[in-house]
Design a protein around this nucleic acid. Structure first.
Lengths: 331, 331
DNA sequence: TTGAAAGCGGTACCAA
DNA sequence: TTGGTACCGCTTTCAA
């Protein structure tokens, strides 16, 4: 099990076994062979804690996400993982469930494990942790969170532009009464979306309504918010959602009320996850180019490519869920 | 940064600092206060590699899954995580993407990190790794994979029963021509589903057809398989899918061909993930009680509750996607 | 080409 | 209540 066990079995020193394990040249072939055999027989597996302790690093990257149930985060993780593996890194994921204390725990865990880079892809506020992060001494990449500073990369998506594209698209289709369904909490990036919605609709003089879903994500939250919305008396001709998951929930509720989409009401999502293409009807949404995000994170974590700020641009993806506004909205 | 740095700053020994860090009682309040201050100022964070090296364990559980993009796996992970956190464990996830070499790497990584328990929730074959796992010396729980032995818990779901329930349900609705869309590879548990489908249809004398999707999961695979199926000339009145993701893809293709569900063709999924309830139409499926799975895994990993075999029973969930068979199937 | 020994950053035992 | 020290398993000089 340990280097020493193998050493005594092969009748050599631990140094020699270590050399064999790490593929050094300076080992006599016959010795190497003997050691290899012992290694094999004893099913030796290096203790990474020990190895990394002496190395002082771990060629492991840490990724912290708010919500593994949102395919958007999972996709970014996947793309990042792919690049990391190619470069010989392992990737570990931590999940916060939007809980600030979990965030702190995850950060402690990853920094305590001396990961060589940490990607923080969360929606919650990171401020209270900034202090410890500042002294971490490793590259840290943020997506969507907090203020970037030294040794940190802030990657941001232009929500304002994205939301404007949606509002404009709907406006051009004749919509003048729009509702927006967002997250419940004070999550920075999602406030951006709401503010952008408010700004865009105000600018165009569109009647609007803002509503917070009860959960952070998920179909159920979108559905429930839709119930409240429709029962409130505000009869929108279009419903915009903070993400695609919510939009699916909205579609579900509308369907169960026999409200046609986009015949009676248009619906939009955000993120362009796969379900947006496969739901019935498919969902008009904003694409966030994950490859760019993943690549930027990876570079900043490994190549020391620490551009302080990166802004990512949106694309509008028009699908079946949006159409010409009816004069007489149903609800 | 290190215990020693804090010690010299607080003018005490490393032992004392260690005691304070670990909350031992036997420290004079005044000393403790001084140490705490130093700790705070220097932003000390214990090196987990060192700590775990001496401890010989890590109060961390490892979870390996095939596919983080399948919400089914994510849900199990979440439930497991919840219980683990309550019990003071951290949970680390590894992702294999159905690649056997990734599985081996993940296992090496987790065992090398001396996790105190390892859950392997994958569909690929684990046999080649069994040898190393046998010597791991820690509790290992399998879901859906490999042969359980000593120190290992095998949790299995009764796919045969689940598939029978679906076939029977459809049969009772008058269906006599059924197609099944499965995974492409020789993945043990999914072969079970296919075999169960074949067995159940044969028993009832139903015309059947088996088809493999091109990917492991995902909407696109289901959709593509449906294209092949419909273009093949076999005109089923019902399509059964290996999982709910596939079923969503099937629905999408049928919709784009203006084939009504369940009017013209009935569709079923498997797993009962959330989308099955929210898709349009909602999907008749088999529920797999994840709580039981997660709880069983957790217990076997921590409490030494090592029942060798656990079999989990299915529930049939009837929703909108299945209905009475038409005499003249369209396709 | 090989072995001995000094750490890496902690913990824990023993003495003081 | 404190400090000294051996040791966890591995890597890495330095000598032999």
């Amino acid at each position: 099990m340990r280097l020493e066990d193998v050493a005594s079995k092969a009748k050599v020193s631990v140094s020699t076994v270590s050399r064999v394990v790490n593929g050094f040249e300076s080992v006599k072939p016959s010795t190497r062979k003997r050691v290899m055999a012992a290694l094999e027989q004893m099913n030796y597996r290096p203790n990474l804690q020990a190895r990394e302790l002496v190395a002082g690093k771990s060629n492991t990257l840490g990724v912290i996400v708010s919500n593994l149930e949102n395919p958007f985060f999972v996709e970014i993780f996947h793309l990042l993982e792919e690049q990391a593996h190619k470069a010989g890194f392992e990737v570990l994921v931590g999940n916060t469930n939007y809980q600030p204390d979990r965030l702190a725990t995850c950060i402690d865990m990853f920094l305590g494990r001396r990961v060589s880079g940490l990607a923080i892809i969360v929606s919650e506020q990171v401020d209270p942790e900034l202090k410890q992060l500042a002294q971490a001494g490793i590259p840290i990449a943020f997506y969507d969170a907090a203020i970037p500073g030294k040794r940190r990369t802030g990657i941001h998506f232009d929500y304002g532009k994205g939301m404007s594209l949606l509002v404009r698209h709907l406006y051009d289709l004749g919509h003048r009464r729009m509702a927006y369904i967002g997250y419940p909490l004070q999550l920075g990036p999602t406030e951006d979306r709401r503010d952008a919605f408010l700004a865009a609709t105000n600018k165009l003089g569109v009647q609007q309504r803002y509503l917070a879903g009860r959960e952070h994500s998920g179909y159920a939250a979108g559905r429930e918010a839709t119930r409240h919305l429709l029962d409130s008396g505000f009869a929108p001709t279009a419903i915009l959602c903070v993400n695609d998951l919510f939009a699916v929930g909205v579609l579900r509720e509308l369907r169960s009320r026999n409200i046609a989409v986009p015949g009676d009401i248009s619906v939009t999502g955000f993120d362009n996850i796969e379900i947006a293409e496969f739901s019935g009807p498919s969902i008009t949404t904003i694409n966030i180019p994950r490859e760019r995000i993943a690549t930027t994170i990876f570079r900043s974590l490994t190549a020391g490519d620490q551009r302080a700020q990166v802004m990512i641009d949106p694309d509008l993806i028009v699908r079946e869920s949006t159409g010409i506004a009816h004069k007489k909205p149903r609800a």
